[in-house]
Design a protein around this nucleic acid. Structure first.
Lengths: 139, 139
DNA sequence: TAAATAGTTTCGAATATTCGAAACTATAAG
DNA sequence: CTTATAGTTTCGAATATTCGAAACTATTTA
């Protein structure tokens, strides 16, 4: 490509570059970001172990060691699960000597989580059929 | 094995069968079931697409076709996502002629989901740092 | 009956998640 | 400095999830 003599180099190219159709960009709407974030958070909670951890943390901070013992988990494994929660900002940490204490980073999130659990507990008691409705249209 | 003359056949075998150590059984506590269920539900929601579907269904039932169009998804793909939600009992269906209409199966669950979304929207506006706290204990 | 429309399922490859094992870092106490 | 304890990270194999393509089912209309 040769440089154009008029001044700005490659103006056409730049315009092309900026065209929506040509360059989708990261033009995420706030809504898209929210859905993505929500999905990430759900993914972080999509594990019985991590939910047990969060449940434990509802009663205040706990060291990794204490949680490993009370939940019957290997430290390495628990640490991996904690890393998932940490990376999403769902839990936060504090060091004191040898111990690292984990706590819930945002009580509201735990609350929201607990509400869902309540709904599910209800469903569980109401017969537990939370499985696929067998027939869709087949008579 | 010969039947014993005393009455109940194979009593020893039965006792053995019932021993926790020999037969783990599905002796899940209600709590374990709940955590497992909760995790399953979170897994079902751990996808931006499925969350968008659920969000759509908050405003009433929709046909697959309509959702595919409004969300810009291929029908086959949307159908796969809907199957996930269906299998967990999160959505239910109704057929009317050629169309199958999906609806939220339990409004409370959608509500719980919406609450979490609210919390996350708040966090998103409050600066958006929902990422890992860089340092744990390293000075 | 055939064709059209709405929706589902199956298959397979790409990608992501999980967990144990082993190696690693950080702090405290000898 | 050495050891012990608490916790994290890395690696790799097993497993699970995702999506497009293609084939399939169900219903209506002609």
């Amino acid at each position: 490509m040769k440089a154009r003599e008029s001044g700005m180099p490659d103006e056409t190219m730049w315009k092309n570059f900026m065209r929506k159709e040509a360059v989708p960009m990261k033009k995420k709407t706030i809504d898209d970001k929210l859905f993505a974030l929500h999905a990430e958070v759900c993914k972080s909670m999509a594990s019985p172990t991590r939910l047990k951890v969060l449940n434990t943390l509802q009663n205040g901070e706990q060291s990794v060691d204490a949680m490993a013992k009370s939940l019957g988990l290997r430290k390495a494994n628990l640490s991996q699960h904690l890393a998932v929660l940490r990376q999403r900002g769902i839990v936060a940490t504090r060091r004191e000597g040898l111990n690292i204490y984990y706590r819930c980073a945002n009580p509201k999130m735990l609350k929201a989580c607990a509400i869902l659990r309540e709904v599910l507990l209800e469903q569980l008691r109401e017969g537990g059929e939370l499985l696929e409705q067998a027939a869709i249209g087949r008579k």
